[in-house]
Nucleic acid binder design. Structure first.
Lengths: 150, 150
DNA sequence: GCCATGTAGATGATGTGTCATCTACTGGTG
DNA sequence: CACCAGTAGATGACACATCATCTACATGGC
């Protein structure tokens, strides 16, 4: 790792601003969601993915693949959500090792109640300040970076 | 919060990609830093700010202002870093309530050792895939969003 | 059928972030 | 001086993330 290629002035400004933005944005979104609906962003993501299937249930490994979370993170998260009554675990008959995660009625109510305020906050804090061109440029940029992340 | 303004297709794609990118990027950076130098991103940020001052010391409230962290987050972080010998706390004579955080010799060695690999990773995972125009567009976008965040 | 290897998922330890709350000192006003 | 609002910082409880490790079942080769 000799002679690292340091960031130039533009890159450094962009990087610092990016880090700062993402930290503050995440904090604000988390706070709003938590305060208004008692859900964390993690809860929200899990519930969104569950409601995307009309059966409201998934195998944990599918959820893991979709969310791109660590397996144990997901497992712990589900345990906490189960304790709070947002999801339920069910046995999987096809595969003795496996399980299903099922959204509960309470989970459905929670996500239904939380979604409008959350989306509104995302819009207000993020998209309302951007032009259409910036949005498409962002889409492009994130896709490019994601490619490199493999 | 009736009739929320939902995100349109472009916005939704951009938002999902952004979330995914930031999650994966942060995870990768954290892992690299942790594996190669035993520091977390949080440690790194604190140490960078300390080395920015040639005395290598700051009042916690300055650090808080610069990093824009929650006060208690910083306090816990400093406690952990102190336990690991990266920083030291000193009394502040001017203000009886206050304190100083001082980087230790070990902290200096840690940041010096960690920086090249970290910067290299940022470059490799992020900037190497982007054009100069994308970098300046990002700088602009993050600045715009930060404005709205107040 | 038996074994090796792989896959699904859970768990405990530890580090990290947030909230609520606490202590102690400062500095201005009467 | 006495009081009190404000500020600097620490702390305990709890949610969250990661790592290492563990159990149990699946599956393919012999």
């Amino acid at each position: 790792m000799n002679s690292p290629r340091w960031l130039d002035a533009d890159e450094q400004r962009a990087w610092r601003a990016y880090l700062r933005m993402q930290g503050r944005l995440t904090a604000r979104l988390n706070r709003q969601l938590q305060a208004d609906s008692g859900l964390s962003l993690a809860d929200y993501d899990v519930l969104v993915h569950l409601t995307d299937r009309e059966e409201g249930r998934l195998r944990p490994y599918e959820l893991q693949r979709d969310l791109q979370w660590e397996q144990s993170r997901l497992s712990h998260q589900l345990t906490r959500m189960q304790r709070r009554g947002l999801v339920r675990r069910e046995e999987c008959v096809d595969d003795g090792r496996g399980a299903y995660v099922v959204i509960t009625e309470q989970g459905r109510r929670a996500i239904t109640a939380a979604a409008p305020g959350h989306v509104e906050t995302v819009r207000r804090l993020f998209f309302d300040g951007l032009t259409r061109e910036q949005v498409t440029a962002l889409e492009r940029l994130t896709a490019d970076v994601l490619d490199r992340l493999g």
